[in-house]
């Protein structure tokens, strides 16, 4: 238990040490997204299910920031530990694989949620400026549920990828070729209702769609997909990636690069 808490504390301390990357960067990027898409473009967009485009965009950006940061946190922690050699310390010390996985993915949840919160605050500020009211969270419990599950999932994906990776480039490749397209196509910027039925079907195969829409339901009360379905799919995804992370720790390498 103390081993778990120590790794968790270390994860938090680590991202706080690189606060510029972890907190300021998402602040700037969500500010820019909201400015360009939400404010400029939003004026040309119809409101969707009774919410303005700006409001529609906010939970999508929250989830996008969370996913990226959750993935980043665990994967870069492991990869930089591989680089410096102190990942071996974890293998040599009496901590279990489960403790490592939970501590690291909860670290991801904390950083991801922090970024989502910042995005929410920035978005809320834009809302207030444009529409004269703050963004109220429709279903806080659902919102929290999807934030935590998504943070855990992408924390665990980060762990799995980092354990298999043999170079830094493999991590960026994963981000650029898998994570980014899936988030962009998962309904961050557009409701899939606007899409051709064929592309709607394809989109529904994208697991990120359910996380993004789950959070959108939690924040705004609207969603392209059934929330119950979204919750179930998220939990299945969580179980799957937890299993994958366990295999990665058992089979992957703790050795330094």
């Amino acid at each position: 238990m103390i081993g778990f808490l120590t790794i968790f504390r270390r994860e938090i301390a680590r991202f706080l040490k690189v606060i510029v990357q972890t907190v300021i960067t998402p602040f700037v990027s969500s500010f820019l997204y909201l400015l360009i898409f939400g404010v400029s473009l939003g004026q040309q967009m119809d409101s969707h299910q009774g919410v303005s485009y700006l409001a529609f965009l906010i939970p999508g950006l929250m989830m996008m920031g969370l996913i990226n940061n959750a993935f980043q946190n665990s994967s870069s922690s492991i990869v930089s530990s591989k680089f410096s050699g102190d990942l071996e310390d974890l293998r040599v010390a009496p901590v279990t694989d489960q403790e490592i996985i939970w501590a690291m993915s909860l670290g991801s949840v904390v950083r991801g949620t922090l970024v989502a919160l910042i995005t929410y605050l920035v978005g809320s500020l834009f809302m207030y400026y444009q529409q004269g009211e703050w963004l109220h969270i429709a279903h806080p419990v659902s919102a929290l549920f999807f934030l935590i599950v998504a943070g855990l999932i992408f924390g665990m994906i980060g762990i799995s990828v980092a354990f298999w990776a043999t170079t830094f480039d493999q991590l960026s490749a994963f981000s650029a070729f898998i994570l980014l397209p899936l988030t962009y196509l998962g309904g961050v910027f557009l409701s899939i209702e606007h899409l051709h039925p064929f592309w709607q079907m394809v989109s529904k195969l994208n697991p990120l769609l359910y996380l993004i829409n789950g959070l959108r339901y939690g924040v705004l009360g609207v969603s392209d997909v059934n929330v119950g379905t979204a919750a179930v799919i998220s939990l299945v995804g969580f179980a799957f990636f937890f299993g994958l992370a366990r295999i990665s720790l058992r089979k992957g390498s703790f050795q330094r690069w």
């Binding site: 270390r10 301390a13 040490k17 930089s80 410096s84 050699g85 310390d89 010390a93 901590v95």
Partner: peptide, 25 residues
């Protein structure tokens, strides 16, 4: 270990505190 570890984020005392935690202290 034979190879020196170069952890970049923490100072000497922090490293030893984390190390203690890994061992349940």
């Amino acid at each position: 270990h034979q190879e020196v570890i170069n952890s970049g984020f923490f100072d000497v005392e922090e490293i030893l505190e984390f190390q203690s935690g890994y061992y349940g202290l």
